[in-house]
Every structure is written in C-alpha cells, then in structure tokens.
C-alpha cells in the first residue's frame, strides 16, 4: 500500500517535472518512458525521440499504409490506446491526439500522468508548431529544427518554377466535399503552384462541389486526398466514375494515406507529388 502510494507520488512528481519542462521549454528532465496512444504521436516520437525513450506506440504505428514512420516502429511494443495498457508501461509522458478517446485522456490525467494532447495540424505553420512542441517535450529541440529546415528546403524546391498561368486543381472527396482556403490541402495546392478551384468558387475550408459542377469547371487536376490503399471503398469507386475519365479533368493525383492521416513535416512529400503533377501538366509531358 505504502509502496504504491510512493510510486504514485513519484510518478506525480515526474509528471510535474515534464509539465514544467513543457512550459518552460528547457530540456531538464527528458522523458524516458514515452507512450503514444495516437498515430500522430507515433510519428513525432519515432522521428524526434531516441528509441530508448519510447516505451510503447499505438497499434497503427507499424501500419505502412497509414504510418509514415512504420519501418522505425519495428520492435517497439504496441498498445490499443486504453488507459489500462498505458498504465502498465508506467509512462512519464503520454502522447494522445484529436481522435483518442476523450474518456481515456481524462482518466490518464486524473491518474497523474502528463499527457501531451496533439491536434491535427491544418496548416504548414501548425505542423511547424507541433513538431517543435514535441521536440521540446522529448528534450531534442535541435532535431525538430533540423527536420523542419529540411521540410522548408523541399517546399522551396517544390515552389520553384511556378508558371505565370497556374493550372486549376481541386482536392475532392467522397460526398462531393472539396477542400478550400483554410485547409492544409489548399495550402499544399497553392505551394505546388496550382490555383484552387474551391477558392475560385468562393468555398471555405470544407465546401461542396458536386460531380456535375466539377465536370462543368474542368479543373486540370483532381486530387484524391483519400488514397487508394487498403480495403475497397466508395471513395475509390467515385474516382473511377466515367464522368472523370471522359475528359472532365486531365489528371487525377492520389495522395497516399500516410501523408495526410497525421499531417507532419513528411507531408511535404504530397506537395512534391503535386508539384510534379503541375510540371507534367504545364510542360504537356506525360508522367
């Protein structure tokens, strides 16, 4: 009984120390038993923390379709994101996120574990902020700056050679959703040198462009932001619609799930794909 209480007090103290380091942003006590219950936390931990600092990752960490850092996750124990499993690892930092069960996060906080709650970044700036926030929390601020510098260099390269008359593109999703200004997708389109059809139609971050209007507007590129990996889905069926193949658009570009499920520094890959598509369209060359 006493031992348990001691351990709990110790854990609380460690929690406060990490929380303090999160606030004061000086790497005093870097966490040594990081447990991530969220795919986004997995990516950040694998890229920014030492393998020895990671106690467990979410069960999606090794899923190559969704996890960009899947290969690095080999050999690290996985969890299903439930409080009970997390407690077993006695973490000194828990990484949760937008889609983690809220009850789990509350339970872990009530038990005194420090939880870093990660949002889904909706802009390049948010990606930068989140990367640095995590790098500081892990005690590896310099690593955060390095991967962000690499991201910015790649972005600059993708931006290079943008034509005067940018071709029009649309990021389109099932149920006729389209991503416009205010979304990460829009920022990526513009960074890659496209004009966004959703913006020209006056839509916000999430608007609607029915197939008929898409056919009418004829964007040069339609972006399938849903990927086509894994189980067959209505999304894939939609991008096989004859209307798209009969000349409504010149090109369909599919962005793999691992680049958008948890947007991060590596999502610059998507910008590079879009920029390559733009070059192919404006050069008139076939990919």
């Amino acid at each position: 009984m006493r031992r348990t209480r001691h351990r709990r007090i110790g854990r609380l103290a460690a929690g406060i120390a990490v929380a303090a380091s999160l606030c004061a942003s000086h790497a005093g006590a870097a966490p040594q038993r990081i447990v991530s219950i969220h795919l986004c936390g997995d990516q950040l931990a694998l890229a920014l923390a030492d393998p020895a600092q990671i106690a467990s990752l979410s069960r999606f960490a090794r899923d190559r379709a969704r996890s960009y850092m899947a290969e690095a996750a080999e050999g690290i124990p996985l969890n299903n994101g439930l409080a009970e499993e997390v407690v077993r690892f006695e973490p000194d930092l828990v990484l949760a996120g937008a889609l983690s069960g809220r009850t789990t996060v509350q339970a872990l906080r009530a038990l005194g574990y420090p939880v870093l709650d990660l949002g889904l970044p909706a802009s390049l700036e948010a990606i930068r902020d989140q990367t640095m926030q995590a790098a500081k929390a892990f005690g590896h601020e310099a690593r955060g700056r390095v991967i962000l510098a690499e991201m910015d260099a790649r972005l600059a390269h993708a931006r290079a050679g943008r034509p005067e008359a940018a071709p029009v593109a649309l990021v389109w999703q099932p149920h006729s959703f389209a991503s416009g200004p205010g979304s990460l997708e829009h920022e990526f389109l513009v960074a890659a040198g496209f004009r966004d059809l959703a913006e020209e139609l006056g839509l916000g971050a999430l608007g609607r462009v029915p197939l008929e209007r898409l056919v009418r507007q004829r964007p040069a590129l339609v972006v399938n932001w849903m990927g086509d990996e894994g189980t067959p889905s209505l999304a894939r069926e939609l991008f096989d619609h004859p209307a798209l193949k009969h000349g409504a658009t010149r090109r369909i570009e599919t962005i793999p799930q691992r680049l958008w499920t948890c947007p991060g520094w590596f999502s610059v890959d998507a910008v590079e794909r879009l920029a390559a598509a733009r070059r192919a369209l404006t050069d008139g060359a076939t990919p």
């Binding site: 197939l211 008929e212 209307a243 009969h246």
Partner: peptide, 10 residues
C-alpha cells in the same frame, strides 16, 4: 461537359 453530365451522371 453537357454530354458528360447528361450521359454519365444524370
């Protein structure tokens, strides 16, 4: 686009 809309969609 009218042909695509009428024949492939509507």
């Amino acid at each position: 686009s009218a042909a695509i809309i009428m024949q492939d969609i509507r």
